[in-house]
């Protein structure tokens, strides 16, 4: 089924396939994300959520199918065009992926420094302002990532993702590894900052509380396919037994967990 919601989608995937050796991870993904919309892709571990995200980011190359950003096909792009497209993106990584050799402010301002939009003094000012947007005081700016707690690292990662005012932000399991309260704080921040930046958001998660909070629309990935997609309000009466099993977290149902990898 084609999860369409708009005539001019910001991101559009059609029939995207990716296999590693004999293991088919993405088996024909169709997904559209409208401008300003927040789509959350849910699914169990190992269903290909990260591969989906990395294919859009250009870190992985799909075997076939098409991925369009603002109508431009990106799967067969040269590296300079690719870089131009990547400038539209911001990404919050699962483990925050902060550069541990750089202080917090340089992490946050890394993208704008790389694009040479500003000098170092201006960059630091912008970084401190972005840090305050995610609720961190300016004292944090000169610390190193290793000196921060997990929740603070996530916040710095979020500040880095929004620093260059991206048009599209990706969130890779934003609440994994955080306590429930900190997870909720991060969810609130995600909603707040995407609205402030006016960005389109695509997230992957298996945390339903997080999905309910940040999504306009939810798509469920199972065995390399989107098996259900719809507005977040409909998720409790999707009529899809796979979705029901997943959102209620039941061990028995149509989804059989592979015990062996």
């Amino acid at each position: 089924m084609h999860a369409t919601s708009s005539a001019n989608p910001k991101i559009s995937l059609s029939a995207v396939k990716k296999a590693f050796g004999r293991k088919v991870v993405l088996d024909g993904i169709d997904l559209d994300v409208a401008p300003g919309e927040s789509v959350v892709v849910i699914g169990g571990s190992g269903t290909g959520k990260s591969v989906l995200l990395k294919s859009i980011l250009g870190i992985l190359k799909p075997d076939s199918g098409s991925i369009k950003v603002d109508g431009e096909e990106i799967t067969r792009m040269g590296s300079s065009d690719r870089e131009r497209i990547n400038n539209k993106f911001g990404m919050l990584f699962q483990g925050a992926a902060l550069f541990d050799s750089l202080p917090v402010w340089e992490n946050v301002a890394f993208g704008i420094l790389a694009e040479k939009r500003v000098n170092r003094d201006e960059a630091k000012e912008i970084a401190i302002q972005k840090l305050s947007q995610v609720g961190l005081i300016s004292d944090v700016a000169d610390l190193f990532p290793a000196e921060l707690s997990g929740g603070m690292q996530k916040r710095v990662g979020l500040a880095r993702a929004i620093c260059a005012d991206p048009e599209i932000i990706f969130f890779d399991e934003p609440t994994t590894g955080l306590d429930p309260i900190m997870a909720d704080v991060i969810n609130d921040l995600i909603v707040k900052v995407t609205r402030e930046v006016g960005a389109t958001a695509l997230s992957i998660t298996h945390d339903m509380a997080s999905a309910r909070k940040i999504a306009n629309r939810v798509a469920m990935l199972y065995h390399g396919k989107i098996i259900w997609a719809g507005p977040v309000e409909d998720i409790d009466h999707s009529g899809n037994e796979y979705v029901d099993q997943f959102i209620h977290g039941r061990a028995d149902g149509p989804i059989k967990m592979a015990v062996r990898a």
Binding site: K54, L57, G95, A97, F99, E115, A164
Partner: peptide, 17 residues
């Protein structure tokens, strides 16, 4: 270590090869 903690992927998303 940068590879396994996704820091190399992060570089790509921050306009840096």
């Amino acid at each position: 270590t940068m590879r396994v903690t996704e820091q190399i992927d992060a570089l790509t998303t921050l306009s840096t090869n």
